[in-house]
Structures are given as structure tokens and as C-alpha cells.
Design a binder for these strands. Structure first.
Lengths: 253, 253
DNA sequence: ATCCCGTTCCGTACGATGTACCGTACACAG
DNA sequence: CTGTGTACGGTACATCGTACGGAACGGGAT
């Protein structure tokens, strides 16, 4: 899968599927909800690559093709998975906006929650988020995350832009973290170990004098957070700069 | 492919492959370079999903398994593709740092070049950038992009953090754009058309009063750049905030 | 000239995958 | 009790990456 996103074809079908109640069960007790939750369980535990229709069906004790009675295809299934995961983000719509402190603390809260979300469900990062899935939980998420930006001196468009900026930052940084985790898991080496193994081969072939700044900075960064990159630090550093920039925009009025 | 990234196994092998000269050709004239360039051509034109070992071999007029004489597997091939693409970024290492204007203009130049890169090679966004591929061109890129940040009052670690922040922003925003492009291409509908088709089904099921802020802001944003999101605007807006934040960091010393 | 051996090429085959197609068997309305 | 719509799922197909092992070649040693 990965880069796929045909958008299914019929938008109305997808909308109905996302917003429907999914309670009707046939004689084998199969439900859309059960399918989605099983799929999330597999993806959480073994990654998106391990998620196949056969595996889902097997785990549900059901024939593979029975899934297609409830779900049009795998793409729509992943759409449902994403919207379901969004549902776990906030207890209620006012969670971010009722955060103590101003909009800045609220946005830090939003960033932290999204960061945690991608930690729990790394597979979300692998699903190309094409034209955002407009499910009920995604809509609630958007509403919840927008509210703290109300009435602080931003236009509607700026509110949307600021939120997009923050979420893009979190997602991108989470992607870096997820990649590091995956390499670590698949090679059995920590990042530090990996560099120790690669360094000799690299030094033999790479003339450090051609990259004076890069090698100095790379060295410094590597030592500071043992491992070439520290996603947690990147998250905080970046968010601080972004929020400073937004504050400057507001103050400049 | 998509979410894969086994890191191949032997790091030394990958390093040698990336930094090697790739000039030795066998009796059929097959080269690593030719394989990589053909692969890039396919991915550029038809997307990463259309890239298969069979297609590459076919286009080269060669048996599929012959590729494996020169390249260990598909994952390593994509590593080579990425480093090759990086090679097209700057004419020389000093391109960004010799930009007229200060570090700010230089970083805008860097952002614009990366933005263009992802426009030309959208498949790069689909390849999970695990433990960054340390090829020769990637190293040059890092050096080139770091140089404009020299001597402006940032520590080594901050230099790295700032660059990471900017590149993450560009990549994330490019990902949004690529997704929109792909939906547009696969459905044959422009984004505006898509929303027009989906809106009726959505309105029937979604109670706008539950999402007061979201629907107001979404409406405003949608009208401003006809289409729910305007990646180009998001790029500029975000970059401006980020650079303001960095400027504040420097000024605060 | 002959042989040998290392390398390059590639045909075949295997185990995956998503899902189209179509028969079966059940639950419920009449 | 019977008729019919829906849920279920077995089989099959195209596609993928690539393991395996044989064929074909080029160049060095005899």
C-alpha cells in the first residue's frame, strides 16, 4: 500500500461509511467497527506492512471476502482506521481550549497530543493523507484544535494557517521519530550502534574536508543527543520557534 | 513499497554502493547509473506505485533478474534514487550561502529549492526517510544548506535544529500538495469539483452547529484559495513564521 | 589453441498481496 | 412453509519482490 489513495471513487459512499453508525451485524456477527478495530490492532502491533485483508479476516475467524460485504476495499478501511484513531485524541471538544494558560499553552497541548497519537499509531504516518478524510472525528479534531485560536487577533484564514503549520511540524517530526524507531527495530541496533558500525566504511570513502561545516555540526549534534537526531528535541525547538513567530505576527498589529 | 525500510542489512554494502563510481558495465552494458536513472524516470512519470523491478528491466531491454547483479534489492535502489535526486538540487555547494541578502533570504532559497525538488520528484515523499541515506549528494546538500547559518549567532546544535525545522516544514507541506495533486489526477476532478460533489452528502450527515468554529474557518479558508487548502500559501506563511521565530532567537542574545 | 573460472545474465518458481466473480446458505417476510 | 434478499466465503487472477540455479560469455593461465 503506502502511496495509494484512489479516493475510492464514489465520495458519497465514503462519506456514508465514515459517518454511518455501523451497527448492523449479519449472522456471523461481523461489523464495520470490529473490522476497523482489528485492523488497528494489527497495525499498532506489527506495522502497516503486516496489515492485510487476509490477516484481518483470519483474526476475526471469518473468510477473507466477507470483509468486502462491510467495507468497499482496503483504502476505505484505512480511512476508517484514521478517523477512529482521531476519536481517541481528546475527551471532548473543549479539551484544548479549556487548557490553563493562553493560546500558546493550548497549542503546546495540541502538539503534545498529536505527538502521542503518532507514537501510539505510527502507521498513520505511512498512510498518505490525501485530501483529508472528512470523518466525524476528524471534524471534531479540527474544531477542538481551532477553538483556542479564537479571538486572539488572527483572521480566520490565519487561524487555519497557524494550525496547519503546527500540525505539519508535529507530523513531520513524528515521521522522523517513527523512522528511527523502525530502523532500530528491524536492525536490532540502536541508532548509536548503527552509526558505530557505519562510521568506518563512511570515513574510508568520504573526505571530511569537503564538508567542513557539515561534519562539525553533525558531530556536535550527534554528541548532544547521542544519535544523529533527537526527535523530541526537534519537536520542542521547532514548536518554540513557530509559536514565537505567531506571537510576533499577533504583536505586530 | 511505501513503508518499507529494512536498511538492507549490511551498512557497509550500502555505503559502498552509494559512494561507488558505478562505471563497470557487463556485456549487456547494464550499469547502476542506468538502472537508477530509468527507475527515476518511471517514478517521475507514473508514480512510485508504477515502479517495479520488472518495469525497469523491461525498459532497459534486459531480464528482470539481471538488475540484481548490480543492485542488491529494491530498497537499495530507492536509496540510490534519492541520493541521485539530491544531486540535482544545487549547482555547487555555495549556491545557498552565496545568495544575495542575509541568512533569511538564503533559507528562503533553500526552501524554494526543496519545494521544487518535491514537485519534480513527488515519489521522494512516499519513501519513508528512515535513518537518512548518507550518500555523497545528501552530504553535499547538508553542507550547502548549513553554510548560510554559519556565524549568525547560532550554536552548532541550533544550526542543525533550524535547518531540520525548515526542511520538515517544506517536506510536510509538499506532502500535502502531492496528495492533492494525486487525488486530482486519479479522480479527474479538481479539488473544487471534488468538494462540490461531496458537499451534499456531507451536509446531510454533518450537523454544522456542532462545529461552529470549524465550519466558519473552513469556509473562509476554502473561499480564500478556492479549494480547502492552498499548499503554496501554507509554505510561505509557515516559512515566514518560522524565520521570524529564528530571528527572535538570535535577537534575544 | 585449449581449458578454466569468475562474472553477468536471466528463466522459472514461490509466496505474498488486493479483490473480481459467483455459488451457497442463512434469516426473515409473506 | 416457502420465497427472496443479503451475508458469507472458496477459487482464481494479476501483480509484486526475489531465491535459486543454469546458461553464456570474457579473459588469464597452461
Amino acid at each position: 500500500m503506502d502511496g495509494k489513495r484512489s479516493s475510492g471513487g464514489d465520495p458519497a459512499r465514503s462519506v456514508a461509511l465514515l459517518w454511518g453508525s455501523h451497527t448492523k451485524a449479519g449472522r456471523s456477527g461481523l461489523t464495520v467497527r470490529a473490522i476497523v478495530e482489528t485492523a488497528i490492532g494489527i497495525a499498532d502491533a506489527e506495522g502497516l506492512d503486516a496489515l492485510s485483508m487476509r490477516r484481518v479476516a483470519e483474526r476475526l475467524g471469518v473468510g477473507t471476502m466477507s470483509l468486502y460485504t462491510h467495507v468497499p476495499g482496503k483504502i476505505e478501511l484505512t480511512d476508517l482506521m484514521i478517523d477512529t484513531a482521531y476519536g481517541q485524541l481528546y475527551d471532548d471538544v473543549d479539551a484544548p481550549s479549556s487548557q490553563p494558560g493562553g493560546w500558546r499553552e493550548a497549542m503546546e497541548f495540541v502538539a503534545a497530543r498529536n505527538w502521542d497519537l503518532y507514537l501510539r499509531h505510527p502507521w498513520m504516518l505511512q498512510i498518505v493523507t490525501a485530501r483529508p478524510v472528512v470523518g466525524p472525528n476528524a471534524s471534531l479534531k479540527y474544531e477542538a484544535e481551532l477553538r483556542p485560536l479564537e479571538g486572539i487577533g488572527l483572521s480566520d484564514i490565519e487561524m487555519d494557517s497557524v494550525l496547519t503549520l503546527i500540525l505539519t511540524h508535529v507530523e513531520g517530526t513524528a515521521r522522523i521519530r517513527a523512522s528511527l524507531d523502525q530502523v532500530q527495530q528491524s536492525t536490532g541496533m540502536s541508532e548509536t550502534e548503527w552509526w558505530l558500525v557505519s562510521a568506518p566504511a563512511l570515513e574510508k570513502v568520504m573526505d571530511a574536508s569537503r564538508f567542513p561545516v557539515a561534519s562539525r555540526v553533525g558531530q556536535a549534534a550527534g554528541q548532544a543527543h547521542n544519535g544523529a537526531t533527537d526527535p523530541a528535541h526537534a519537536l520542542d525547538f521547532g514548536l518554540a520557534r513557530i509559536l514565537d513567530g505567531v506571537a510576533a505576527l499577533i504583536a505586530g498589529r
